[in-house]
Design a protein around this nucleic acid. Structure first.
Lengths: 192, 192
DNA sequence: AAACACTCTTGACTATTGTCAATGAAACGT
DNA sequence: ACGTTTCATTGACAATAGTCAAGAGTGTTT
């Protein structure tokens, strides 16, 4: 259990066996069925979730339409960080696109680990730094590139997600309507 | 010197006088004239810059058109983090919109501080976490909201920047053409 | 003071994306 | 295996944003 979690952890920060055991004591496993919520808008986000198996999404809802902020498949971490850290109401929803097995770091576990295990803080720092850089790139491509190029770069960057997730969710992730993505794919196919 | 830097630092992580002196030894002051580059695409980003006075922007260039990723005024931090951390070529440019006074943390200072001063690591973690959360919100509003609402929320969130920076740069930041922003402002004014 | 660069606005036109509605195919649950 | 939901596609039309070109107002430089 927690194999993938510690594999990803150790890619960033190596751990001795004892350190790993120490950290393990703070983790909570959780299973989620497809369509089940991990977090709903308005609740307080009580954990950071690492995906051991399955696929989740994080999204906001605006006038009834969903906007996907993030996907998370095996090896990824997902949370409403703002709500988690401040205790304020979450503005995002998180639910499972497939049955999933998660490793949860609860708020209290997070705080204890920050106090007791410097390597945890380092891991968190590196994790968020990587997420930040990825998000900067996504934003840059969003304000710079036409939809078609954003779509091809998405499928090249995340071919696994592109295959596992319905098209209209990729459209939502990209910030366009499903019909628009469908037409763009058609044009691309015709050109080939 | 470095007043604002340490004020912002201590808002996140309190320091003793000795700790502050220790950290101060790693900082480098730098002045930048209006239009001067701090970083050019293709170079390696050699420092994280904190703005004591003035205003900078970070932007990418695509087919000759500029796309502003970030503004930074007093109290903000700016860098091409990816290039800084990996030593790869920068994909962003950073230059001064006004004469500016900066506090630089060079790569070697950054590494030494991470080793020697745990509070520096904590500060960095919190700094990036805050930046990450802000960026998530910006992306959410980019994929969710029409341009007009993005513009009003920008001016409400950053009234200081909205006043100091030319309109076409705000358009670039929002990912629309200057003409479009101009027309949206006109519509808004007519409705009032 | 004249020349220049920069910024913002506006108009006419084009391109892209969204909306609404309908259809067929595939996947899902029982 | 059946009915139900979910998904993707398409068409006709509307709304939004981009392109190109021109002009006016500012402020700066020399």
């Amino acid at each position: 259990m927690y194999e993938l979690f510690f594999q990803k952890f150790q890619e960033k920060v190596p751990l001795t066996d004892e350190e790993q055991e120490q950290i393990k004591a703070y983790l909570t496993p959780k299973k989620l069925r497809k369509r089940q919520y991990l977090l709903q808008e308005g609740e307080v986000c009580k954990a950071i979730a690492f995906v051991e198996r399955g696929a989740l999404r994080e999204y906001s809802v605006d006038n009834g339409s969903e906007h996907i902020l993030q996907f998370a498949i095996e090896g990824w971490t997902i949370s409403d960080l703002f709500s988690f850290l401040t205790g304020e109401q979450a503005t995002y929803n998180i639910d499972a696109l497939e049955n999933a097995e998660l490793v949860l770091i609860t708020k209290s576990a997070h705080e204890e680990l920050l106090k007791k295990q410097p390597k945890y803080e380092t891991y968190m720092r590196l994790l968020i730094t990587g997420a930040y850089i990825a998000l900067q790139r996504r934003l840059t491509s969003n304000i710079s590139l036409p939809v078609e190029e954003r779509y091809t770069s998405f499928t090249e960057m995340y071919p696994d997600i592109a295959q596992r997730v319905p098209q209209h969710m990729i459209a939502s992730f990209m910030g366009v309507k499903p019909e628009t993505l469908s037409r763009i794919r058609k044009k691309m196919a015709e050109r080939k």
